[in-house]
């Protein structure tokens, strides 16, 4: 079990470096489930499935499922210096994300009667009941994966879930 966990964690970090930095952060946290959920919600707001595709080499994507060594060999050789430079340039120009702008605006410091972006959020629902849908087939589900907390409705869906999705974070 222990080995399995560490193994999967290693594989995940490899993936997340390319898929989304938020997911890497989610995996580093102790409360995996909520963090992963937040990362998934965050992904719903992203434009492209791949973050900053113009920075990545297109061929790089292909190595996603390749052996580790190929990936390691490739990375320092061709592109490392270039990306660092590109990154420095990118940092200068790159627009801030909305959340950064929100932090800078420091809305918490305003007096409590001023309506702001933060206070306009609707807040949690009054009834706590949440319906669960099978993440594999979409029908209502009664079971929860003990490892990752996703839902499935039957043993068949469970098998598919374990094979393709459990702790893998491929959206």
């Amino acid at each position: 079990m222990d080995e399995e966990m560490s193994n999967s964690a290693r594989r995940m970090s490899l993936r997340t470096r390319k898929i989304a930095p938020k997911m890497a952060a989610a995996l580093a946290s102790s409360d995996n489930r909520t963090q992963a959920m937040l990362a998934r919600l965050d992904a719903l707001e992203s434009d492209n499935a791949v973050v900053e595709p113009q920075l990545l080499d297109d061929d790089d994507e292909a190595s996603l499922d390749d052996e580790d060594q190929v990936f390691h060999k490739k990375y320092p050789k061709g592109t490392k210096r270039k990306t660092r430079q590109a990154k420095a340039l990118e940092n200068k120009r790159a627009p801030k994300s909305f959340l950064e702008l929100l932090n800078e605006a420091n809305l918490e410091s305003l007096p409590p009667h001023v309506p702001t972006y933060l206070r306009a959020a609707v807040g949690p629902p009054s009834s706590t009941s949440r319906r669960h849908f099978c993440t594999v087939c979409g029908f209502s589900s009664t079971y929860t994966c003990v490892q990752c907390g996703m839902h499935f409705c039957s043993i068949k869906c469970k098998a598919i879930h374990n094979e393709t999705r459990c702790l893998k974070f491929v959206a």
Binding site: L41, G123, P124, P125
Partner: peptide, 9 residues
């Protein structure tokens, strides 16, 4: 939205 895991009404 709660079905999605989003804690909003």
């Amino acid at each position: 939205p709660a079905d999605l895991g989003l804690n909003q009404a």
